[in-house]
Amino acid sequence: MSEYNDKELLALFKDVEKRNYAFNLIVRKYQEKLYWHIRKIVIKHEDSNDILQNTFIKVWKGLDGFREDSKLYTWLYRIATNESLTFLKQQKTKYLLPIVDYENNLKETLVSDVYFNGNEIQCKLQKAVLDLPEKQRIVFNMKYFDEMKYDDMSKILETSVGALKASYHHAVKKIEKYFTED
């Protein structure tokens, strides 16, 4: 989509006159990847849209101070993940729901959601993923759906590669159990 790589985009952003243009390019380059990452965590489109907007607003405000210690897309994913987790926490405290009830609520949303067109098996897989603890769910989504490398995941989630591998292994086992039991 964009002919610029991340370094060039960041250099462009530092130029005050081209700041808006550079930010627009960053949004266009990463909006879909981040949207699907967020969507798999919070399930609903409307919530995903709000979180994606908040993510990019934080990026807009923080891009000046971005020190390029990490890659741009790692930083973007980290903000999106944190925003999604914060959103889930807020929802649970807002409706005073225990974790299990909130996940059950999301499962019901999945069935009635007009923006979910999956078949029966895909729906079952999503429900099995929703049964996982939040962090395990994020690890599974990043590895299984986004096919992300463990090294990159480690930078985004600030967790060791070993812990991520173990987390993914446990997640797959739980999903297998969900499929065999049902």
């Binding site: 909006q31 949207y35 969507r39 849209n49 999503q126």
Partner: peptide, 19 residues
């Protein structure tokens, strides 16, 4: 299972109008 298409979708023109 993964080989199938993305089960989630978005409203028409969402990504075009998002920026």
């Amino acid at each position: 299972l993964k080989g199938n298409t993305n089960p989630f979708s978005v409203p028409k023109g969402y990504f075009e109008s998002f920026p």
